[in-house]
Design a protein around this nucleic acid. Structure first.
Lengths: 380, 380
DNA sequence: CTGTTAGCGCCTTCAG
DNA sequence: CTGAAGGCGCTAACAG
């Protein structure tokens, strides 16, 4: 039905093998022959049959990028950075495709299966992982199988997989260890969420804040936990230095919600209910922070005059929100690009397989010292 | 290397054909046999070899979704809606993958080639098209070939392709017309950008605005042009009814920029320079509108007290921006879902192959009647 | 440098 | 309802 290699070969007066060789470009072919073939390809508008090629070569040019929420720039930036490393225009370039899990562990597994079915060259998993042990087990099993099948696995923005303990290979290949083709152990580009959160809370404490609310992300996600840990570590630091235990209050001043604007809004209302004397609110990320700001404003509180607000991630809109948001910068583009290169094997693996990217505190206009005696609104 | 159909067959004590049949599920197989096979599949952790299967069946379960900017929720929402129709968990479900063109026509073509190479089941192109005639020609040629190869093509949020005039099939198959397998002519889910813009500008005119600035999108994109046309149509309506020609001013009060926040910011500054007496600014979309608001605020102008602002698209953040943004709602999710169903052939084609989705004016807090004598800032 | 020869793993008639 | 057999289009050794 469609034009095949053989058609091109016939037209160029060469064998199919020769056509294949000029197309893949990794084998010497005489200049004259090459151009004759290329012309035939043009004339016939030939397009390689990917499945056939993948089958014969036992390899594919698909690279999957899994994201939790495709409508969130946090993931968009990483995904496009990964894609930017793929060079799809060049021969041998990969086709990076992004798959939206919607944050569902089930869907994550489904996509991994589909990608495994396609014999994807690599898979990049971005964003926080769900901490449910059952899912974690299913996930690492699947990832291990992918790696064993030669698919490179890269984690970006999530912690490294737990060591595959037990080696419970039920009577399989029985090869003694490093028999894995292109895969190997999953590589990781991790974010220093803990450190970033710690510095951020430290910044607020240094400004003099003592009643700090925290609108955290979903309770079961690694990113949420790490940021929360950093936050509490800073509170603990403070307690150690000043003999003033802020940790006891921490749980009461923490609410959980999704990584979206409305949970920032709702969370802030709840926090205000619990503690009308709040002088600062930390948000799970910048998007949540915008919701926090909206709720605060509607409550008649000024930012940072009455209440300071800070986000996390430093997405593009944060710098020119009003007021400009104090936040923790994660170099998402760099991280994604690096993950992309690792996925292609174009960059050597970091020691231990884990690269941690530094986060940076961005102090802007949304945080300031608390007012000495801020008028406490009437509690509901 | 990996476990194959034959392995499963051997384990289940049946032939490969039988395994294939239970897996694809579209052929009668005895219940006992089926469960025996399924168990073998489980035990062996068998995963179909996609390329082999695609080759043999001459079909694939890949569906490509092309977007201009993956970090923009406008596209994220459509893409996830498309994916939501794919049912990847079910047998016969498709793998929807999104490809980020970054707005580059070249990259758009590259991805289409790659998708054609993969023999994608369908391709959905979202967002505005570039109007360069050369590219348009290359694009429709590629799309026609895709369709001819059996790939369903759906346009979502862009105008239908021009009719393939000439029928310049250079001595090809010579089948007399409707010989196309699954493809057929590209289907379109178009947005009524023109009508939406017209109502939006009409709304401002009705409020009493006469000096309306417009921060438009990139000049060469269809969406930009349609929204601008709607805007000017409303101005023309007004002139006709009131004998007051606003069109003459329109060009001077229009600036072009990217679909991002900073062009809203910069564009507003430029408009203010050209016409310090502006009472309203229309933005290419909601994101741009946020930039407009930022610039206005920094210029010491209040919204909507001094200047009204309106966006387009009604992205989630628009409703709770401050002030809440007047905008034109496009049912992006519905449109994307419909495109997805059309791509799967699960919904019958609209008459003429083009479905136009209605847009809806959302009047919120960012627009109001102009102040009778607003203090004109000193021009620079 | 180029042609020939086997498959890659699966689907799909065609028999039974 | 199940098995046997051929071939999908391409690549990767081999020869030459």
């Amino acid at each position: 039905m469609a034009v095949t290699l053989a058609d091109v070969a016939a037209r160029a007066g060469v064998s199919a093998a020769t056509v294949s060789r000029v197309l893949s470009g990794n084998y010497p072919v005489a200049g004259a022959t090459r151009s004759r073939v290329l012309r035939a390809v043009e004339e016939l508008e030939y397009v390689v049959n990917g499945p056939a090629s993948s089958l014969a070569a036992a390899s594919s040019d698909l690279v999957g990028v899994l994201v939790n929420d495709i409508a969130d720039p946090f993931f968009g930036i990483m995904a496009s950075a990964v894609q930017s490393e793929m060079e799809p225009e060049k021969a041998g370039g990969k086709l990076a495709v992004v798959c939206n899990t919607g944050g569902s562990p089930q869907r994550e597994l489904t996509y991994l299966t589909l990608l495994q079915r396609q014999r994807a060259a690599a898979v990049v998993l971005t964003g926080s992982a769900v901490e449910d042990p059952e899912h974690a087990e299913a996930l690492s099993a699947r990832l291990r199988r992918l790696a064993a099948a030669g698919t490179r696995v890269v984690l970006c923005g999530r912690p490294p997989l737990p060591e595959a303990d037990g080696d419970g290979d039920d009577g399989g290949t029985g090869d003694g260890g490093k028999g894995i083709p292109g895969g190997g152990a999953p590589l990781t580009v991790a974010f220093d969420n803990r450190g970033g959160a710690r510095r951020l809370t430290g910044h607020l404490l240094a400004l003099g804040h003592r009643r700090i609310g925290y609108v955290a992300g979903p309770a079961e996600r690694t990113t949420t936990r790490h940021r929360l840990e950093g936050h509490r570590a800073a509170l603990a630091d403070h307690g150690r230095d000043h003999g003033h235990d802020l940790l006891a209050e921490a749980a009461r001043l923490t609410v959980h919600g999704a990584y979206d604007r409305s949970s920032g809004y709702d969370g802030t209302l709840e926090l205000l209910r619990r503690e009308p004397g709040l002088t600062a609110v930390l948000a799970a990320n910048d998007t949540v922070a915008l919701g926090v700001c909206a709720a605060l404003r509607e409550a008649g509180l000024s930012i940072p005059g009455d209440v300071s607000v800070a986000g996390f991630d430093d997405l593009p809109f944060s710098a020119d929100a009003s007021p400009a948001l104090t936040t923790v910068r994660i170099p998402l583009h760099d991280a994604g690009a690096r993950a992309g290169r690792l996925a292609l094997g174009r960059e050597s693996a970091p020691p231990g397989g884990v690269a941690t990217v530094r986060t940076e505190l961005m102090v802007r206009a949304s945080t300031a010292a608390p007012r000495a005696n801020r008028p406490v609104p009437q509690a509901g």
